[in-house]
Amino acid sequence: MKKNLSLGLGMILVLLILAVWILSFIYMPYKPNEMNISERFMKPDFNSEHILGTDNFGRDILSRIMYGSRNVLLVGVGSVTLGTMIGIILGALAALFKKYASSLIMRIMDGLMAFPGILLALMLVTVVGRGLKGSIIAISIFMVPVFSRLVYSMILDTENLLYIKAAKSYGSSKFTIFIRHFIPAMLPRLITQYSSAIGSAVMIETSLSFLGLGIQPPFASWGLMLSEARQFFLVYPYLAVAPGIAIIITVLGFNLIGDGLNDILIYRRLLL
């Protein structure tokens, strides 16, 4: 019962964010980058024109939160998808061609894991360029070792199972076995991991933006909004409330879905 509670709650939260995301293409109360210096620092007030108030340039916070959802989702989903694909390929190569690829690929993965995360991001972003593209690439490289290690160990675990051995003895190629047998066996774990990874990717994106390495002003991203709020936080604490809550809802949503799926897809199978 409670398994579905995680999943259900997660779904609700993610759907909420998705709704905001879709709405941002249809209607936003103001242009998210439009400044109005004379109306800056207006406190949130449900009856006013700016429900969530305005920031230091007089920009409407609600519109910026809505616009920010685009960047957050694009970076979150985009980077994890990219990272998963590369991770699966590398992990599979390492596991299937143990003689040649294993130690090389896994050593590089070790190197990536050992590299201080923020430094890796800093350098990647400086090379690729700040902004959307930079964030997606930097975060996807974060994700690669996670998925490649997962795939690597799952293949090693399953390859001694009878039906795989049987397939090998029939002379199926490594590629066929991988597609027909390994992928279906790994799917539940991959899906689970994928969902939670989006949660952490969103978290990394906001940290990058907070440090000024992510989406560039004047465009809105929640992390950047927090970073801009920091300057004025003492005098105008409300500036940090909306973006903070938006981040928590998104990360919580994807994590809960991951947990719920984990319970349903993996634990249930183990118990049966």
Binding site: E34, N56, F57, R130, Q216, P217, P218
Partner: peptide, 25 residues
């Protein structure tokens, strides 16, 4: 921050006469 803030305001003002400014920080 002084220049980053000033630049953003200028970008917004220039957009009003049709000059589209891409900011790179």
């Amino acid at each position: 921050q002084l220049h980053v803030d000033g630049g953003q305001v200028i970008a917004d003002q220039l957009s009003k006469i049709g000059i589209n400014v891409n900011i790179e920080i």
